[in-house]
């Protein structure tokens, strides 16, 4: 089974997008998850709901809003215009922004669960040893929550690979720029190139299964350790 050059290009693009989105969401999602796990603020509910929105919103809603927002008269378009940056629609950067929004809950929610499972105790102990909150976070919370980080990273990466509707709506289907693997499969099907569609679809199916296998096989380990 060999993939055509354009299929490999789409897969590489997909991997770059998912990798970059995962890194960005580590930086953005970790403080949000930490805050959600520990705050008693009234804002916890609304912020948690906003973070979870991409789980229930149809991709067409997100795609439609993003396309309008990125236009020259939209809020995002005005900002990029004022800063002298090229518009985001039909660009790789635009896909990164869209995917960060779309995959946000897949980073925040596993991290939040991991932070909540820590409880107060380890951080209190760290405080009595005069660790600063930042020090306590990096030398106590992060190592203890490591399985949560791994799960969050795998799910974020995989969910970004599985993205389709948003990319189709704002990407403009440009080879090597916005034509990710899922869109490439769609194009093959539309063009009746079923053999090509089968090959690429098989790659994604195998990948998705292995990812889920990794997540579900891992899940037991912390539980077994604590038992």
């Amino acid at each position: 089974m060999t993939l055509a050059a354009e299929d490999l290009r789409a897969l590489w693009l997909t991997a770059r997008l998912a990798g970059l989105v995962t890194l960005i969401l580590f930086a953005l999602g970790t403080p949000v998850a930490w805050w959600l796990a520990r705050t008693r603020s009234w804002w916890r509910g609304p912020v948690g709901a906003v973070v979870a929105l991409p789980l229930v919103l149809p991709p067409s809603v997100l795609g439609f809003y993003l396309l309008v927002a990125m236009g020259p008269e939209g809020p995002v378009g005005r900002i990029t215009g004022a800063l002298g940056i090229a518009p985001l629609a039909f660009t790789f950067r635009g896909l990164v922004v869209a995917s960060v929004l779309y995959s946000l809950p897949f980073m925040v929610q596993p991290l939040q669960a991991a932070f909540e499972a820590l409880g107060e105790r380890p951080l209190e102990v760290a405080a009595t040893l005069r660790a600063s909150p930042l020090d306590a976070f990096f030398s106590v919370a992060v190592p203890l929550a490591l399985p949560g980080f791994v799960t969050a990273a795998i799910l974020t990466f995989a969910h970004t690979v599985g993205e389709f509707g948003v990319v189709l709506m704002i990407g403009g289907n440009l080879p090597g720029v916005t034509r990710v693997a899922s869109v490439q499969i769609y194009d093959h099907v539309e063009a009746l190139a079923y053999a090509d569609a089968h090959r690429l679809a098989a790659v994604l199916l195998t990948f998705s299964f292995l990812v889920l296998l990794a997540v579900y096989s891992r899940r037991r380990r912390p539980w077994r350790l604590s038992a």
Partner: peptide, 16 residues
């Protein structure tokens, strides 16, 4: 590239 001609019109209507 729009998915169909109406989707293409949407790209232009939004100014993208």
């Amino acid at each position: 590239f729009g998915d169909n001609i109406a989707h293409t019109a949407h790209f232009v209507e939004t100014g993208n």
